[in-house]
Write a protein that binds this DNA or RNA. Structure first.
Ligand code: NAD
Ligand code: NAD
Lengths: 192, 192
DNA sequence: ATGTTCTTGTGAACTCTTTCACAAGCCTCG
DNA sequence: CGAGGCTTGTGAAAGAGTTCACAAGAACAT
């Protein structure tokens, strides 16, 4: 909307564009203050700035990827992250064939430099893209290196202290969700 | 648990392993019938079978990937999907350099064969991994081909009729969530 | 048999989220 | 300047989802 030069946007328009309702948009935003203009809507540029600050993206977040395999490499080439406020600074891998290369402009470093470089580069978020079997071990090292958040692609439970935020992305789980919806829409539940 | 040969599992154990509470597990399962054994727990093998049938995964679901780029190719090599009940049968791309090849054992076909092959191969779910700009167009074609669900990696709104289920996976959105949690844990919201 | 120990299944209570509905405020136009 | 048209912000109502707490049953030892 900023790019299109729109000045104002109503809660109804925002709701439309994001699959929710106008009341929901207003209620949600009101949790962070009241910065709309009655009779007008929200000033687009101000709203953008507010959301940026609510999300903690006033400065770009510094991100590292651990595991430069299939999914890890794909992420290293995911250009859109920059425009959403994230910079992938560095990647790590244990495979000697991968270490030392540069993938989509991002250097792949060996695991023995992990803690040192996470700290030196001021990494705030680690994207975990190793096999599930080693995810816990990597998470431990990342935690002790003082990183603030982990986004894990490994579908394994991670035991962490409360000192960092953890989220998962699980493709199979989403497919299961789709499968459930599809079943519900057609057969209903099929007896086992 | 089946592999480990466990016979029975309690709601408390299930809760433990999945980050929820025992009461929640029981309430959720009770929505689909009552198949636990009082005093004992749930029979592991029966529970597996029930969940499989609830999720509609008694038979593997047939999946196609559209867009064999960075993320699309990674998915074609995602072996764990098979064990979770999904078979990636085929991929499609518009780039002549990609069409005709086989990526991780999956053939990449040209877009002009899309509708025909989706139908011929009995594809139920399409994973959308094209640039966002063409996602809507592809979604339209996929819809009219009678596919039942779409999992989109493109962070663009898709307009679809109610005939299919749609889900999104948005890496940047998850990172934004992490960033918010991190901010909340440290500064609080920073003024814009 | 009976008592003990366990764990499910589930109403009822509680908490959290969403929707409703309208006063308050801003802008434009006559 | 006041009326009319919009849209926000927000209490209150309605609706969902979660947790509590306990009766009902199952196994097993005595
Ligand atoms: N491929 C996909 O599309 C996909 C999709 C979703 C999730 N996942 C998950 O993401 C993870 C990675 O999957 P992938 O398909 O990219 O696998 P992959 O084998 O291609 O990549 C894994 C990478 O991790 C590296 N690695 C192994 N042990 C390591 C260690 N101890 N420390 C650091 N690096 C180590 C390997 O050298 C390899 O480069 C898995 O947990 C997988 O389940 C994959
Ligand atoms: N790279 C990542 O890690 C990543 C992560 C999450 C989401 N995404 C999203 O996934 C999508 C793909 O990203 P990518 O990084 O793989 O890009 P990419 O450019 O590597 O791949 C896109 C592929 O789509 C093909 N394509 C283009 N137009 C097409 C059309 N009309 N029909 C069929 N195929 C077409 C291209 O030939 C290319 O192979 C984008 O929407 C991106 O935002 C990417």
């Amino acid at each position: 909307m900023c790019d299109r030069g729109a000045e104002l946007v109503s809660s109804a328009e925002l709701a439309d564009g994001s699959g929710t309702t106008a009341a929901q948009v207003r209620k949600d935003l009101s949790n962070f203050g009241s910065f709309g203009k009655r009779g007008q809507g929200y000033a687009v540029e101000e709203l953008r700035a507010r959301l940026e600050s609510i999300l903690g993206l006033v400065r770009p977040r510094r991100v590292a990827v651990v595991g430069a395999g299939k999914i890890g490499s794909a992420l290293l080439g995911y250009r859109d992250l920059t425009s959403r406020g994230f910079e992938i600074i560095v990647a790590f891998d244990i495979d000697p064939d991968k270490v030392g290369r540069t993938v989509f402009g991002v250097p792949v470093l060996p695991m023995n430099e992990l803690e040192h470089r996470l700290a030196a580069d001021g990494i705030e978020i680690v994207i975990l893209a190793t096999p599930p079997a080693v995810a816990q071990e990597v998470a431990n090292r990342v935690t002790s290196a003082g990183v603030a958040g982990i986004l894990s692609f490994a579908a394994s439970k991670l035991e962490t202290d409360g000192s960092l935020a953890v989220r998962w992305m699980d493709v199979a789980l989403e497919l299961e969700g789709l499968s459930f919806l599809i079943s519900a829409a057609t057969n209903g539940v099929e007896e086992p």
